[in-house]
Amino acid sequence: MVNAAKVLQDLRASAERKPDVVVRLGKPLIDSGAVLKLDADAWLVYEQVAIAALDMGDDGLALKCIQALETRFPGSPRVRRLQGMQLEAVGKLAEAGQIYKAILEEDETNVLASKRQVMLLRTMGLPSEAIAALVKYLDVNYTDFEGWLQLADLYLDELMYAQAAFCMEEVLMLQPQNHIFHLKYAEILYTQDNIQLALKQFCRVVELCGDHVRGLYGIKMCASRLLKAAPSKDAAATSQEDLEAMDLLATERLIALYGAPGAAAESSKIAATKWIETQ
């Protein structure tokens, strides 16, 4: 039991979305009432299990958790947001919207409710309204990198790459040490055919996280694209020799990484080597 509580706590800290694990570990805790022994953490577990249960389609469990929270914290906006999420999950979107609206009428700075409204619009199939709502939210809360990331995602759904790239630039300003964000930015740039800049961003990914396979593939793809294209006259562009050296280094690292014992299955090793050779 102590173990399950520890795993749930780790999952809360890492923010990974693993509803199956959460429900499997959390359901026995809640059904047996053992969760109450966790003191203050108990309510966090209730919230976590409620959201995971909604993900898994276990509405009975979700309602049970939300009701327990409602009795403990009557009228709390955080619990009402959970109720809204439950309504969203079962498809009662208009009622969920009313809950969020009521929360915001009481306190228009409630960040969580504004974020839910954005997702509600997206669930309703109104992407441009969702984007407009999120832009309005980010106008006020411009240091919320999660919001910028989500905005980039919404723009990508609409194939608006320039706007998505701008959002990722904002994210990088706020979280420069996260290599995954650099990787996302690099891949958007590559899709935009901005290969020069994409190459630099892929290099940054590998700089922040050595031997990052997706970053190395990116370097390789950018370098070979640039080598095939006519040499650029731009003085700021990477020189041919540097490109060749980068291409070689990325190839070397990729082959070494796939060749490491136990690193990959034999079939994927062969496929990777074949792809690298054709480039």
Partner: peptide, 18 residues
């Protein structure tokens, strides 16, 4: 690293599958 817990959406196949 790329988790966005406050932007969960629930109109996904997980609800039907599980």
């Amino acid at each position: 690293l790329d988790a966005r817990p406050s932007f969960y959406a629930f109109n996904h196949r997980g609800r039907a599958v599980f």
